[in-house]
Design a protein around this nucleic acid. Structure first.
Lengths: 137, 137
DNA sequence: CTTGAACCTCTAGCCGCTAGAGAGATTAGA
DNA sequence: TCTAATCTCTCTAGCGGCTAGAGGTTCAAG
C-alpha cells in the first residue's frame, strides 16, 4: 500500500492527474488510510502504468477506458483493441500529413523574408494574401 | 457593409468564432445596424482573412495578435514577425518528430497482434508492459 | 511533541472554440 | 402591408486533459 505521492513517482503521473483519472472513472476509488488519505496497491499501480503508456502514445481517455474494459475480459476476441490502435494510428498519420503541409508553407514564408521593415515583410504579406501560398492548407 | 453571416461566408470563419475574436480583442467591435446587428467593412474582412490564414497555419491567437499589431506599424523592423514565424516552424517540426515516434510505435504494436483473444493481444500487452517498446516516447 | 512535508477537497482557469436557449431584427414574397 | 422564414443578438455552459491555488488535515521523522 503506497501513498498517492509514491504512486506518482513510480508511474510518472502527476498527483492531480491521478485524482482526475479517479474522478473520470479510469481508476477505481482506492482504499483510504484512517486519516482519509489514498492508499494504492501494486495492481492499482499497474493499471495506472497502462493508462500512462496509452496516454504517451496519444490515445484519448475514452479509448483508454475501452481498452481497460477489454483487458478485463481475457476470453473475448481482441479485434476491438486492434481497431482502436489502428484507428489512432490513422489519426496520427493524418496529423503528421497536415503538419508537414504547414511545415512546408511556414518554411517557405519564413525563409522568404529579406525585408528590413514591416511594410515589405514577406511573412506579413503572405498572411494578408492567401494567393501567395503554394498549396491550400 | 456586410452582415456577420456574409462575413463568415466570405472568410470561412464561423459566426461564433468571429464574435469570439471580437471578445478577445483580435478584431475591433464593428459598427452596428439600427437594430444592433454587426456590420462589417471590407477592411474588417481583410483583417479577419489575415487571422484565418494565420490560424490555418496553426499560429496561436497570442502570436496572431502580435503579428496584427506589427502590421499596423509599417515603418518598424520586421524581425519580430520573422521570429514568430520561425518559432512556430520550430514548434511544428517538434510536433512532427514526436508524432513520427508515436507512429512508429503504434505501427509496431498494431501490426504485431495476431491473437484471437484479449488474453494474448499484443496491443494490450504492449500497453501493460512498457519494456516491449522499441524506444521511449 | 513538534515540525514540515505530504495529503485532502473544492473551485477556477487554460486554449480555441462550439452548442444551445430565448429573444429581437431583417428581408423576401404574397 | 403583413407574414413567415431566416438571421442575428446576448448569455451561459461545455469540450479534453489537465493544472494551479486556497485553506485545511494527516503523516512521519527527530
Amino acid at each position: 500500500m503506497i501513498s498517492i505521492g509514491e504512486l506518482a513517482i513510480r508511474t510518472g503521473v502527476k498527483i492531480p492527474t491521478i485524482r482526475y483519472y479517479e474522478q473520470q472513472g479510469l481508476i477505481a476509488a482506492p482504499h483510504r488510510s484512517s486519516g482519509n488519505q489514498r492508499r494504492y496497491s501494486a495492481q492499482d499501480a499497474k493499471r495506472l502504468g497502462f493508462i500512462r503508456h496509452a496516454r504517451d502514445l496519444g490515445l484519448p481517455l475514452d479509448a483508454i477506458r475501452e481498452l481497460l474494459r477489454l483487458s478485463e475480459h481475457p476470453g473475448e476476441p481482441c479485434g476491438d483493441a486492434d481497431r482502436i490502435a489502428a484507428g489512432h494510428l490513422k489519426l496520427v498519420r493524418e496529423k503528421i500529413a497536415r503538419l508537414q503541409g504547414l511545415e512546408r508553407e511556414l518554411q517557405r514564408i519564413a525563409s522568404g523574408c529579406n525585408a528590413e521593415h514591416v511594410r515589405d515583410c514577406y511573412v506579413l504579406q503572405s498572411l494578408s494574401n492567401h494567393s501567395l501560398c503554394a498549396d491550400e492548407h
